[in-house]
Amino acid sequence: MGMNSFQLLNGLTFAALLFIVASGFTLIFGLLRIVNLAHGALYLLGGYLGYSTAIATGSFALGVLAAMLGVALVGLLLDQTLLRFVRGHELRQVLLSLGVALVLNDLALVVWGGDSFTVPTPDLLQGAVPVLDTFYPKYRLFVLATGVVTFIALWLLLNRTRLGALIRAGVDDAEMVEASGVNIRRVFLATFVLGSALAGLGGVMGGAFLALYPSADAEILVFSLAVVVIGGRGSLEGAAIGAVLVGLLNTMGQVWFPELAYFVIFGPMAALLAFRPLGLLGRAV
């Protein structure tokens, strides 16, 4: 369908990035019932932190670490301070997170200014390698691999560990989990911190090939929303399917209708919603 393997790979690497960001979003949404509209701002913050650390230390790995830890810390503070006041009020939580997004974005503008930055990648990941019938940048393949590894790691966490079992149980019925003697607040907190760290990871990963600039947070947020709406609340597999769909559709849109690329993503999303309002793998609660 008019897409060569280079574009296909572009779509898939973008999908991998989207999965990293959206998986954190969907976990928080699914378990805590918080639509964290600050998730995009956390992504951007992670990107900037990673950029500054990578520039200062010359190490990409340290940049990744700093971004994940830094953003996880912000998530921890957010959950323990501001969100404490509005627990149980779905809509107030969302709107509060929106306020947080505005503040974080503005603070980032103060610290890093309005220029666009690209996180420097290590020498090892520079250059291109032959893939299929084309040459493809190593770094983007690395992002693709990171996405796949993240999916496997999260799947194992959710399906093979006690914490994962608690999270899955919490998505289905948090009250019941609490009634059986589990401190669900700690599970909530762990999920929120994990989800934030994933946003930070996404920030560095994306910051190295999409560049970081003041409105990048809104762009990644809306893509993540599309992924979660398509995949269904709280579903890891749904997020993966949604990410691949949105990633490929976005690439197709950019190739065929560069000016209207957004329509190409949201048309199918809207059509899907008409038939499955809860998304592909979403379940009614």
């Binding site: 306020g99 947080v100 505005l102 503040v103």
Partner: peptide
């Protein structure tokens, strides 16, 4: 910093 103020008002 109007955007920050707006965010704070929201919060």
């Amino acid at each position: 910093r109007w955007q920050s103020v707006l965010g704070l008002v929201f919060i």
